[in-house]
Structure formats: C-alpha cells, structure tokens
Design a protein around this nucleic acid. Sequence first.
RNA 1: GCCGGUGUGGCGGAAUUGGUAGACGCGCUGGACUCAAAAUCCAGUUCUGGCAACAGAGUGUGGGUUCGAUUCCCUCCACCGGCACCA
Length: 902
Amino acid sequence: MQENYDFAAVEAAAQRLWNESKAFEVTEDTSKPKYFCMSMLPYPSGALHMGHVRNYTIGDTISRYRRMCGFNVLQPMAWDAFGLPAENAAIKNNTAPAKWTYANIDHMREQLKSLGYAIDWSREFATCRPEYYVHEQRMFVRLFKQGMAYRKKAVVNWDPVDQTVLANEQVIDGRGWRTGALVEKREIPQWFFKITAYADELLSELDNLPGWPDPVKTMQRNWIGRSEGLEIQFMLDGNDPITVFTTRPDTLMGVTFLSIAAEHPLALKAASTNPQIQNFIDDCRHGGTAEADVETQEKKGIDTGFVAIHPISGETIPVWIANFVLMGYGTGAVMGVPAHDQRDWEFATKYDLLIKMVIVSDAVRDAITELAREARGNPDPMTAALGEGRALDVVEAPGALAIVGEFEQAIITKGAYVEYGALVNSGEYDGLDYRGAFDAIAKRLDMEGTGSRRVNYRLRDWGLSRQRYWGCPIPMIHCATCDVVPVPEDQLPVILPENVRFMGVQSPIKADPEWRQTTCPQCGGPAERETDTFDTFMESSWYYARYTSPGAATMVDERANYWLPVDQYIGGIEHAILHLLYFRFFHKLLRDAGMVKSNEPATNLLCQGMVVAETFFRENADGSRNWINPADVEIERDERARVTGAKLKSDGRPVEIGATEKMSKSKNNGVDPQSMVGKYGADTVRLFSLFASPPDQSLEWNEAGVEGMSRFLRRLWRDLHAHVSQPDHPEVDSKSLDAKQKTLRRQTHETIAKVSDDYGRRYAFNTAIASCMELLNALSKFDDMSDQGRAVRHEAFESMVLLLTPITPHISQALWTALGHNDPVHAHAWPTADEDALRKDSVKLAVQVNGKLRGTIEVPVDAARETVEAAALTNADIKNHVGAAPIKKIVYVPGKIVSIVI
RNA sequence: GCCGGUGUGGCGGAAUUGGUAGACGCGCUGGACUCAAAAUCCAGUUCUGGCAACAGAGUGUGGGUUCGAUUCCCUCCACCGGCACCA
C-alpha cells in the first residue's frame, strides 16, 4: 500500500495504461449507441492556456461519463493552424509561419497529453496541411460553378503607410497598430459565399435545436435579423430613382429627407461639381470598418442639393449624404423620419430639418376618441367622425387639438416616438394602426409601381477573402481574356509554399511573381493566381466532419453518417454567432452536396465562460502600470479574512490590486497550466477547473482554491487506503443495517443519483464535486468498524471513485485497483442508485408564520394533511408566534413547507 | 450605438419546478499534535444587538405579483462577451 498520494507516479501509470491499450481509439460500432463529443479546436498559439484546460476538461468529463454509461464515444482533437498570429510571430522573430506553427503544435500536444484527456489521437490533424485544405478548395470551386460563391467589391481597412489591409483587431482608435497612420476605407474585389441563400433555414432550424442554449439562439436570430418591410422608390428629376428599404412604411408620410451613403452614385455625382461635398466624402473614408466604430462615431451629413419626390404626397424632399449610411448594407439609402426614428431625430435636430409627426400613441388616440364620443350630438357632426379609420387631425372636439399638440411638442423637444401607434397627418391613412397602414400603403405603392413588399435580412454574405499569406490559397486564376477561372479539380490542391521569408508586412505569395504566374486553364494564355487566402473560419467550419473520416479521399465518406451529428459541442461563448453560424451553414452545404444526411451539425451545445484572475500592478512615475503576475504576489488579510493589501514576494513591498479580468498577456495575470500540473498534478487541475464555478460562467483562477482540491484528493487517498487496510468485510445486507449505516448508505445512493444528474443533464460539475466532498465528510464521521459498517463504507468508497472517474481519471484508476479491482476503471459501468436505499421514513418540514420561518417539524413521509397541520400548530416555537391570533389560512406543500397565515 | 449575459457572506460559489438563503471549497479565528514549523485533525465563521436564549436585517437599486420571491414582472445602475478581417 502506498502511504502518500504521489500524483506524478499515479498519472504516469494511468496514462501508460491508456496508451498501451489504445483505450480511446474508436471505430464505427453499431452494437453500441454512438456519442460524438467535440470541443472547439485550439489555435496553436504557443502554449496551452487555462481557457483550453477548462474547455477540454469539460469535454473530457462528458466523454468519459458517456463511455462509462455504455456509449461508443468519439472525442477527437485537431489544430486550427492558419491565422494572423503566425504571421506576426514570423515578422517579429524572422521565422516562417509554418515552422512556428508546427513547433507550437508539438509542444501543445504534449501539454494536452499530460492532462490525460481521453482523446482518439489517431484522428488528429492540422488544418494548414494540403491534404486537409484540398477538400475546401474543391468545395469552393464547385460552389463557384453553382453560383454559391461569387466576387464583388467590399470595404477593407487600409493602412496608407504600410500599404496593406488591416484586420479590425489591428485598427486601434482609427489608426494602424504598427504605423499609427489614420486608417482609410478602401473598396477591393473579394470572394463571397452566398450564406444569405440559407438565411431562412438558418433561422427556422434554430427551433429544432432544443439542446442549444437560448442566449446563443437569440443572438443568432438577431444576427440573421429577418424583417418584413417595403422597398420604396423615390423619383428624382433627371437622375435615377433612389430605392430605400423600410420596416416602418406606416411612417412614410413623415419622411422629411433621404440619406444616402458616401459611396452612393448620386453622392459621387453631387461631389463632382461641389468641392465641399467631395471634402465630406473624403472625410467619411477615415475610421475603421467595424460596426461598433461606425455606430458610435458622430453622426454627420451634408445636403447634396438634389431633391426627391415623395411617392404619395408628391412633395419635394432634400437628399443628404450621411456617414452612418453604409453602401454595403441594403440599398445604400434610407428614408429619414425624424419624428419616429431616434437617429433621424438627432440628425434632423443637428441640421435643422423638418420633424413631422405622423404617429400618435394609442393613449393619445384613445383620449381623443373619447372626446369625440362626448362631442357626439354636437351641432357639428364632423367632430364625431373620429377613430376607426377616420381622420384624427380634423378633430375639433374641445381639447383634442391640445392633446395632439402636446404629444407633438414632446417629440420635437425630447425625442422620437418610436413605438407603434395610430396614424395622423397622413391623409387617407389617418387613424390606421401599424398593420393597417402597412397593408394600405404597400397596396398603393405596388399598384403605382413605386414600391413592393420585401423580406430583408441583416445577415450579409460571408466575405471569404483575406489579403494574407498564412491561409488556404483561394483556387482561382485571373486571366486577362477569360476574367476569373477556377483551378481545375485535377490540379488541386493549390499548395501554399511553407518555406518563405517575410520582407516587411507584405504576404510572401503576393511578393513572389513566380508563385503567381500560371497559365489560364481555359484559353492557355498567361495568367495569375489569386493571392488572397481564405478566412480561417473556413477551416473551422468543417473540421468536425473530417474527424469522422480520417484518410478519406473526399471531404468525408459514409462513416460521417455513423458519427454525425455531433452529440455534444463545447466551446467559448465568444463564438456564439460567427463560428457557430458558419459551422451550421457549412453543414447545410455538405448536406446539399449529398455528403451528410442530417440538417444540423450538433444537437447539444455548451458554451463555457472565460477564465479570469486578479491583477496586480505598480504605477510608474509617468502613470503607466507595471503588471505583476499573481504567482509573485502575497495577499494580506485582517482577522476577519478581509483583504487589506498585497505585496510582492521578492521585495516584500506593497503592490496595487487591480480588477479581476480575463487572463491575458497585457495584464500579466495568466497562470501557466503546465506549472500547475507540475506542482499539483493533472487531476487536481482538472478538479479545480470544474469545481470553482459552473461551466457557463466565468472561472476565477485562485491558487488557494487549487490547494483545497489537492487536499481533498490527498484525504480521499489516505482515508480509502485506511479502509482497505481493514479486514475483509461481508456483502451489504440491507435488511440488517442500523440507523447510522442506513443513513450513510442512503447518502451514498443519493450522491450517485445527484452526480449522474449533474453530469448527464445539468452539466453542473461544480455541485457534483461538492456532493462527493460531502460524502467524504460523512465517511470521516462514520466510525462504525462492525462488519456491516465496513461493508457500507466500502460501497461508499467504490461509488465515489466511480463518480469521480470522469473528472479525476488517474487517481481513480489507482484507487480502483486499491479497492481490489483488476478491470480498468475508465471502462467500468456507471453506478446506479438503489431505490430501496433512497427510501426515507420521515421528512423535515419548514413551518412559516406570515411568511417568516419560525420552526421545523419532522413528520412521517406519508402523513396526512391534518396530522402535519396539527404537528405544526402544536410545535412550541410555532405556538409562541401564533399565540391566540385567529388562523386565516394554512398552506401545506408536501415534502417542503407548512405556511400559516394569521 | 445595437444584440446577449451576469450581479448572493471577507472570496469562488449553492439553493434544479416560487417553498428552511449561504451547500461545498477558500480565507479567517480558536484549539489539539510539535522543541518549533510545515502537514494533519477538531470547533467556529452572513450582518447588527445580546453572555445566551433570541430578535431584527439581508441575494446590485427602486417598485410590483404572492401565504411565501435569489427565482416571476417593470425601472434604473454596474460589469462582462459579440458586432462580420483576432480566433
């Protein structure tokens, strides 16, 4: 027997056992239900961080639990190997992105292995390999031929000094991160996937995903943003009409201006004769392209001098250029209704444009309808002709004009009224509600040919082009005579050269004329390769499918339909929209290409929160901060455990305590998982990362907490070995147990039931661990050394080891052996709770008087209502509070509470 | 700006369907063991008043529904994630 828990030896032995038996390599086995458990693949940034550890520990716990429940579990791993950081590292360290990436993968693979994850490593791959990306190149070519991939111009961030395109991340306060130059917007031709063709299905299928978190589904719904409205044409004298889209045609009569994007053809025309307008347009080019930048910048505009004709009233309305209207969204023009749109209101107020109220609230409508009703019988019958589709603005009932006028004043002085209501000042549409006005106006514009109903999506097509080197080459060829031609399938893959040198920030394949040069597959003439690469979301959109079909000559083969859809997907909430939408989209592309049969790629999704840690710093003379790693700091507390300060261990002098934030290099609050595994062992690290918070919330890393987990495992080791050193015991004889033995046995089976539910349904690993700790605490207090006492203790230890196996598989293996078993614990069947052992004779009830807890009573489980009420009323504590007061009501909820109202 | 989330002791968190708020862990206090320390074990630990019994308050703010609200509804505040070229 081993006296002390030597985690290094225990973990090495368990990992050796799994490796030698190839315990987690799986094939399609139709004799068992399959379970595909997948975590989001890591970007090989250099070293594992705590976010990875958390993600993969959750995935591993679910995988191992399902395996013990009898499922054929696939848990794979791969590397999202293309990306911007590799290029940055290449430029900084004068190395090749490929070399840097492969070295990182090798290092991180070893780190993952040291954590003991039950991964089928035989299926591992890196997305930067041609044998992987050839399949997406082929898919792209096919989609291009089907019209699902196409080319159009799109706006990018341009650094005028580096002469390069910048990612949004590289734009800081409107300037390039390297050069500090003001960033400009520039339009260049780029490749797109027509994801909008699937907008309706991506939206409606969300209803068939009960296993996805509601917030994620809501975010996706809002992102797709389906809206029904009208496309309306405004005629211009001597110019093409301007088309706008609106979801509020009921406010059409309140349009007092049109605003168009700076890149709109009409804006360019206005600029050609007016240098002021040209200046304004030039000014609009500054700043980043990110939606947050655009939405928060100061709203500015300029009058083009053009006037448009209102399609119903025939009035002329001015056309303005506005910096918040984007050419890339919708039609590049919007109608301005300042009375009923807050952004238009601000614009109109700033530039002194007319604010015309055409909607009043239902409360206003009801008030004047009431006035009109009172006025019925008045000598002037017109005052009664009100509401229900009649004109509101002609009301002459006393007070009506004042009410409407007051409402209008509030709009003009305080802000737009954006809710639905009743129409006024809208001629024949007066009195209609939103729906009625929508239909009436749609009908009229449709008849006159100036507008039509239209469904619009906020979702835009997926821009695939990146002007970067370290990505999958887009397999297209530019020919002077044939325009763009796809690379023939038999010439795929177009291989990205890996052995390159960076000269400045320029992509090596853009800089290399030899790589570019090729012949046109169509006319045979000289041609150039596309030098842009795919968005790295491309690789991460179909990797899940590739796991099912290692070695297949096509993207996937028939094995995909055994494993797919993914039963459980686990990853960060930051991927709630983009990655998860592209992932779903790609699955539909695969389905429509006949490669898979299901409609959705994953049935269950778990989004884990961030890993955060405290920050510490010292302020420099210039006010900047020197961030200090938490590992180098000691916290000081007073006698009531409140934090009073912190000091640096090395010099003993105080440091400032900052916020608790996401682990990052910039705040130096990262904790290296490897050092934690070295110090405490993988099982302790796994245990803490699940115990400290529920998986969907942020996790605060705290080393004292890690020590607590280590203490628990050491105690379990010690107590269990003390138990097995006792003489052999007979089987549990449930009929001969005394009260204490029965209680322990009940707690054992309650723990089995609770932990099973926490793993399988709730994903509440933190409370599963807490209940195992409670069981160990109960075992410590249980000092019965009789035969049956030892028997129920043995059952408790065996159960606890099995329950902890998914989380702490290494120590569980060692303890399982210590308990006398020869089979590997990871393959042992999951325990089930014994209904008999769970049965209780009596139950404790809380008793409230007027909503306040005043006592507890213990009653038989099957006690009648009268018995329980009598027991409550005769309880001494309750008598004190009830006294002689008459009882109004007694609420009894069996098993829970008795509530007495006096 | 828009979309989504979170807020409970000194700290991380628990309370699963509206039913005993604070499980479990950390920290802290006292004690045992020790020459001493570490480790370990035992007891206590929401706040206020009280020796105690006990009483009152309490889940970001303000309101509402209910016999009963951390949980449901409304208001406001603070913080976090995403916003289409970070992954």
